[in-house]
Amino acid sequence: MNNKFIIASVILLSLTWVFLDDLVDDWGQIESAPDRLETFFYEDLWPPDWSVLEAEEWVDGTLHKPNGELCTESYEIFCSKAWTGMEITIKMAFISTLIGFIISVPLASLSANNLVPLPIAIPARIVLAGLRSLPSIIWALLFAIALGFGPLPGILAMTLYTIGYLGKLQYEAMEGIANAPLESAMAMGLTHSERLVHVVIPESSNDLLSQLMFMFEYNVRHGTVLGLVGAGGIGMYIDNYINPPFAYDKAFALLIVVFVVVVIIDLLSMFARSFVTEQGDVKRPKWWTVLLPAGFAADYYNKSKDSDSEESE
């Protein structure tokens, strides 16, 4: 570790401490925090109320979906708030992520300064910055005012934010690709769109896929927040439970469901990216490992990697 790195680290940490001390007036807050958190956790959150995984039973004994439709599914869970809410949230996130990705890739290519001159890159970057400077909840609020409540304002909000956020990650990934393939393509006379489709996208595919899956995961997580402005999905149910009459244990159960979905998306991302990573760096996962908890999946790969290397020896 060289001296410059140590000095820079010390300066940054000192600045962090100075800013923190400037912002926090009462350090005594921290002392009582564990007790208050413990009380809240055991009295309101724990144990999670797993009735959110069940259909609603009406007084006549029939089972219904949250929207009032009769439950005709083979398993009750498919009619539960957790399932139906998550289904809507995942659909919203899927649509927003995909449309956002399709729009952000060409915009990012117009922002990358190794692909276009600065007079084109700067306006494109300003557009992307504009789109992501408003958080998606503000976009959702604006669309909810314009269109009313429901999934559509949520989808539009997440799409706009996705374009701004993903576009920035993408142009940075594009700027990081090796120069040689681009130079060859330029010398050959390929057009901007040909360079984008046949050189830049494949060369940065690992990053683009990772960002795409991260954005999908982000949008699923953010679906829980967008529910607060009536954008529908699982967030709407969470919002209902954290408002009077409070049912934090049910909200907690729904948050655990969100967590499980996020972990599954992460594993899917690992699987998808395994197709574009250097062979040997990552062993391609089997499709069914997405069903394993993260720790088990890691154990599986470590063991099978060890056995592979023993065989090769």
Partner: peptide
């Protein structure tokens, strides 16, 4: 300007994640 010059840089300039055929197709 288009197709007039073929350039093989020192580091070859291949698209690592694309197939051999896709590279040649460029």
């Amino acid at each position: 300007k288009r197709s007039g010059i073929g350039y093989i840089p020192q580091r070859l300039g291949l698209i690592r994640h694309s197939s051999v055929r896709s590279n040649v197709a460029i």
